[in-house]
Design a protein around this nucleic acid. Structure first.
Lengths: 353, 353
DNA sequence: ATGCAGTTTGACAGCGTTGTCATTTTAACT
DNA sequence: AGTTAAAATGACAACGCTGTCAAACTGCAT
């Protein structure tokens, strides 16, 4: 039942070490030997024992995915992207949901790394933005990849970091550009008074998206107004509250469009609009951000900015693997900057006259 | 930096084996010795090496969670429930999304088990219902827990199984009772023509929910009508299609309520109703199933059957752990049958007159 | 043929824990 | 105090693999 590397070695008439070389795709194995061993592996249906490999080897065959995100769709996409890569590389994935606020956060992560001897970590926002965690990882000498919001290498979360760090440890999502684009879409529809319902203040993406929105207004000679910005969180409930607050005494401002910080906020705004008997998009345009499945399941469907989370996380995993163990083939196809693109659906329309 | 069991042993003045006994909570360790060792563990901040434990021990400190479910909320809840238990027991969780249709499914799972030497598996529907997978696991001698839809020990998925199997390997969700209850809720609101939009046929839960619905109708002397049953899948899109199909020529039947197979289907039905200008709940009542966050983010909010997935999966993990390694304390608080309870929100109302 | 550098292979000792079994200590009796 | 069974502890060999380093083999120029 249980086939060890030794069995394979005997079967193929080589040493254990050679079998090891083959399954680890190490160079300097003759093609003939390689085939011989592979055949034995097939015939015996050999499965390398992860525990033994982890113990004997320098680093282990497991990476971690750390997140603090209430959005199920986001998390699942992240997992699947990383998992697909792990499968290919023969790595295990240790998932670790956690609470970014927790002051013992980095201790908890350190413990996890030590116990499982993780080869690396993929960090999603907002944890990827926390300096104390990065410092801890650096001091531990663990490889990691940070998913960051920002315009490529200029991201504020990387201030004071070397170019080398930025290039090797970060994947960027250009929320600024996406927000700019989506705001411009609204402006072109004739909207002049556009509100913004923000997500969590501690997420860098909130700042980036807000900045993109503001720059778009500025570039089109529209006045910025603090009163049109609602500071909330990345949740449906916050979207409801935000829309209510913004539209409460709308006579003064005549808001004709609301930009949601993400799809959940936009869905919440949609919900609030119904409560207030406001027709979407006739009286008010609403747009989301992220293009989660959610945005297709509201009424009307949400205009949003498409963000391919599973692709992004897959590239994060690639980047991580390029730094671990083998580094066999240099993976040159890694994309490090993603810019979400606007998807126009039914929740936005021409500004009412 | 790296603290081994040997360091702790020296520090505490005992043998490695004794330290091992302490961290594994084995009996027959004097209280005094226990404290002594624990202190050393604290002082040195010792973290047992998972790989070594997995290799040396009989079974490993990792369990697997296998699922094939497109519903992100469901998956996340399942993960979190199992994870919370794993954390407490010091186990790792290996997640494994897969495709139930895949004919090589059980091979893939077998490979995963062998590679990671998993101590056990938690299986969610529909994989928990596939006999070939169960057989494979039995032959491998791996512990597992099946999440099943059905009335406790009478579940059809367990036909031909011993009582012992049913009690030790299964967690039941009584979808039948829940569907009965929710149908009754509609009947009490005066509805006489209630349609049912089914989920995937291969899911046992579909059959169970359908049966509960039918029995409720029967018990209240309402006629069953095949035409009122739409066979679809557990998706939003299917809900849209289902509602459209059911309501297309509604003059013949005068459907006043639709029972969705789950929340997504119900949300889809809601969406379709909007398309057809049908007021919810004034002209048509719609109810969901599962009480995912989703059901609170539609307009109007969905009446549904609350199913505490994270609690359910936590108990599944408990049951699994009661069969592995330690089995230390007999966990007597494991709940093996859950019955979802009706949550009334705004999508259901009195039948129109 | 001979030598030499480069390539390919193998022997063997760990990696950090737990299982087995022997040994020592304790408690509970005469 | 002396005996005995039970409880607590320890010594040591695995577990299945990889890292290290030495040995054997290659091809190629002499």
């Amino acid at each position: 039942m249980k086939v060890t590397i030794n069995d394979v070695a005997k079967h193929a008439g080589v040493s254990m070490k050679t079998v090891s070389r083959v399954i680890n795709k190490e160079p300097s194995v003759r093609k003939k030997t390689y085939d011989l061993v592979m055949q034995a592996v097939e015939e015996l249906n050999y499965q390398p024992n992860t525990a033994a490999r982890n113990l004997a080897g320098t680093s282990s065959f497991a990476i971690g995915l750390v997140y603090d995100n209430p959005n199920a769709y986001y998390v699942i996409d992240m997992q699947n992207g990383v998992l697909s890569r792990c499968k290919e590389e023969g790595y295990e994935l240790v998932i670790h949901p956690c609470c970014a606020q927790d002051p013992d956060m980095h201790k908890e992560i350190a413990t996890m790394i030590q116990r499982s001897r993780l080869a690396g970590l993929v960090l999603t926002p907002p944890l990827s933005e926390q300096q104390d965690i990065i410092d801890m990882l650096d001091s531990l000498g663990v490889a990691y990849v940070r998913l960051l919001s920002g315009q490529s290498h200029a991201s504020a979360a990387c201030e004071g970091k070397t170019e080398e760090h930025k290039a090797n440890n970060c994947i960027y999502v250009d929320d600024y550009a996406a927000a700019y684009e989506i705001t411009e879409h609204l402006i072109k529809l004739g909207h002049k008074t556009i509100a913004f319902a923000c997500g969590d203040a501690e997420h860098k993406s909130t700042t980036e998206r807000l900045a993109g929105y503001q720059q778009a207004l500025k570039d089109h000679d529209l006045t910025l107004n603090e009163d049109l910005i609602y500071e909330g969180t990345y949740s449906f409930e916050s979207g409801v509250e935000g829309a209510k607050a913004l539209l409460k005494n709308n006579n003064a401002y005549k808001i004709t469009a609301i930009l949601g910080g993400n799809d959940e906020i936009a869905a919440g705004a949609l919900f609030a609009s119904r409560l207030m008997n406001i027709a979407i998009p006739e009286q008010l345009s609403i747009s989301g951000f992220e293009d989660s499945p959610f945005s297709r399941q509201t009424w009307p469907k949400l205009t949003t900015a498409h963000q391919a989370n599973s692709v992004i996380s897959e590239h994060a995993a690639r980047l991580l693997f390029s730094k671990t163990r083998g580094s066999r083939k240099q993976d040159k196809d890694i994309i490090t900057t993603f810019t979400p693109s606007v998807v126009v659906r039914e929740s936005t329309g021409p500004a009412p006259v």
